[in-house]
Amino acid sequence: MRTEFPQLAVATITLDGVTPTADVSATAAPFLERASVRLAERPESEFPEIAAWRRAFSQMGLKPTQYRCASEALLRRFKKDGELPSIHPLVDLCNAVSVAYAIPIAVFDLDQVTGNLLVTHAAGTETYLSFGGTTETPEPGEVIFRDDAGNAHARRWTNRQSALSAIRPNTRRVLIVSEALHDTAAADVDALRIELTEALGQHW
């Protein structure tokens, strides 16, 4: 993907020993407050982080107001509801950091990933498990997260994660991936990685 999007900045974190019982509310609160302050200043569509992903989706032939990157979808929900739904402490913390930075963060259960995980164009033979329980086949050329078994762990790059590797109460090993495309993406993704690593260390 770097050939098509040379400005892409990526940070990854691996974490072992995850548990579902941590209380992350106090750790997440400052990140949510930062998101609130930004949203009070201007709409999320005008954030440089979101605008860059919208341009990328257009470049991939997707309508950016129909298919939104994960951080934009979270920001829209947070603005509407004033809070984010609680899913799992790890996911809740990552979502809070995601809205603070307006940068998509994906969290994968590594025990559900076969071999390597690669961001690439789909061949059209991969399988994707939706949260509704249906199996989909990504279109040829669609940008996906694909493992060595041909499982698509995310569709349309940062748009929609698969239920196959979603975090569950019994999840123990995870891979966290954050990606950005805006002008200061490299510095911002690095700052996100540092802050998120510190926050994770308070609980796991």
Rank of each mutant, 00 (worst) to 15 (best):
M1L: 14
M1I: 12
F5T: 04
T12E: 09
S25C: 04
A28R: 03
P30E: 08
P30T: 07
L32S: 08
R34H: 07
V37A: 14
P43N: 12
P43V: 04
S45V: 14
W53T: 02
R55N: 12
A56K: 02
S58E: 15
S58I: 06
M60L: 15
T65Y: 13
R68K: 15
S71T: 08
A73D: 13
R77V: 13
R77F: 13
R77C: 09
K80W: 07
E83D: 11
P89M: 09
P89V: 09
L93N: 09
A96S: 12
A96T: 08
V97L: 14
Y101F: 15
I105N: 02
A106M: 14
V107Q: 05
F108N: 01
Q112N: 13
G115Y: 11
L117E: 00
V119H: 09
A123F: 12
E126Q: 09
T127R: 14
F131I: 10
G133S: 06
E136Q: 08
F145H: 09
R146G: 01
D148L: 00
A154I: 00
R156G: 04
R156T: 11
T158C: 11
S162C: 05
S165A: 15
I167G: 04
T171M: 04
I176H: 00
E179V: 01
L181T: 03
A185F: 04
A186C: 04
A187Y: 05
D190W: 02
R193Y: 02
E195R: 00
